[in-house]
Structures are given as C-alpha cells and as structure tokens.
C-alpha cells in the first residue's frame, strides 16, 4: 500500500495556531464538512452510518466503537489498543489519516491547514455528547500530530543499518508481509513509515510495545528502518 501524499505528511509539521475563545470557526467547519466529509459521513439529526461511520458523539468515543459499522482491521486494532477520539487525536487523524491509523479505509489524504482542522473540529464538537472534552481556549501545549522538522524527513536512510535494526522488528512482524495479529510493515512508503514511527515515539499512537520500541529509535534509525522496509519484497 502506498499512501504517499508527502504533502499530507508535511501538514503534520505545522503547529496549530492559537485561537481565542473557541477552538475554531464552526460555521466554516460546517462548509468544510459539506465539501470534504459529507460524501461519506453524516452528522446531526438523523445521521447514520454510510460509507464512513456516523460522527454524532465522536468526542470521547473509543476508535472503532460504533457497533454496526464495519471498520478496517487497522482501525479496530487501534481501538483495542486504546485510541480514543479527543481533540488531539482527531486533529492528528484529520491532518494525515494514514500517519495515525496505517490501514484506515478512509481514503482522505488529509487536511493540511491547522485553522481549517480547528474549524472542522469545532463543527463536529457541536454534535458531540461530550463537549467538555474540547478545550474552550487554546491549551498551553497541544500534542497534535508527530512533530517532525523538515530535516528529519530529509534524512536519507542507511538501508544496511536498517536491515540490522529490522531484525528486532522481525521477531513479531513477518518479512513476508503476513498480518495475523501483528500488522504488516513491509512495502510502506518511507514517509508513511517515518510518520508512523514518530507517532509512536511521541505516544500519539497508543500501542505499548510499539511505544517502547520507538522510544529509543533516533531519527536516523527510523529513516534507516523506513529505507529497509520500503524495499523488502
């Protein structure tokens, strides 16, 4: 699978700007929703699952928890691992869906502009049962998508080093791409791999084994692994 969209990954690097009282312009969010989300999702009175799951009551809800919706295996795994939709996780997901949930079926390449995401989330919050989970004012530190300075993305991975480091991954992740119980990590676009690993390193993705493995990987080592796994047959 290739979800390339370097533009989407780059969107992760921008930091959400300070907003005043509200998290965003909900009226603008409604327009954005109509244009970009409504083809697949519905929200508000009478909303139901369509191509995507219903978005009423989204905030505070566990990922993949709408009972009668058929989620991707990847999204179900993230839900089981503990991913819950908060302002921070939604912001990261909308910025680049595949960076947070690798195998999501949502074929949306991401919303780069932070104020647009804030507007969209302000609109969705209006239909949430638990608006208290939304900060009314700009928090002092908002953990959004993985913080990746451009020089981190520009690192050219040392494939031979990656091959050594990858031996550690192969204890669980099979090189032939099997994905029973443990997801496949072969044949990823390097930019996706780098974004995903930094999301674990920064504890945006919830899985404890992966957080531990990523915690000690330097940016060079992540790039090396990305270079290696991109080319495993």
């Amino acid at each position: 699978m290739r979800w390339g969209a370097v533009a989407g990954v780059l969107a992760l690097f921008s930091v959400a700007p300070a907003t005043a009282e509200q998290i965003g312009d909900a009226a603008r969010g409604a327009r954005l929703f109509g244009l970009q989300c409504a083809p697949c999702h519905s929200v508000g009175p009478g909303a139901a699952n369509r191509t995507g799951p219903v978005l009423n009551g989204l905030f505070g809800r566990r990922a993949a928890s709408v009972g009668d919706y058929d989620y991707s295996k990847s999204m179900r795994r993230m839900g089981a691992d503990g991913l819950t939709w908060t302002y921070e996780t939604l912001d990261a997901y909308i910025a680049n869906p595949k960076a947070l949930v690798s195998g999501t079926r949502m074929s949306y390449r991401g919303m780069a502009e932070p104020t647009a995401r804030a507007a969209l989330l302000a609109y969705l919050r209006d239909w949430s049962d638990r608006p208290r989970d939304i900060p009314e004012a700009e928090p002092t530190a908002r953990a959004t998508a993985p913080h990746l300075p451009p020089d981190v993305l520009a690192i050219e991975g040392d494939r031979e080093f990656g091959a050594y480091l990858a031996a550690e991954c192969a204890t669980c992740h099979q090189r032939d791409g099997s994905d029973q119980g443990v997801p496949s990590i072969t044949q990823w676009a390097p930019s996706d791999f780098v974004a995903a690993m930094h999301a674990y390193k920064q504890k945006l993705r919830p899985h404890p084994v992966m957080q531990m493995m990523a915690a000690r990987l330097s940016s060079e080592e992540i790039a090396a692994l990305a270079a290696y796994f991109a080319t495993v047959r």
């Binding site: 795994r77 089981a80 691992d81 192969a170 204890t171 669980c172 992740h173 099979q174 090189r175 032939d176 099997s178 994905d179 029973q180 119980g181 443990v182 084994v209």
Partner: peptide, 16 residues
C-alpha cells in the same frame, strides 16, 4: 487484542 497479538508474535518468531 493482546492474545491475538501473541498469536502473531508466535508466527513471527517461529518464522524468524
């Protein structure tokens, strides 16, 4: 999910 992950690990380590 943790149990299913362990099945994946078993398949992974024995293949390794």
């Amino acid at each position: 999910a943790t149990f299913e992950e362990s099945l994946g690990w078993y398949a992974g380590i024995t293949a390794d």
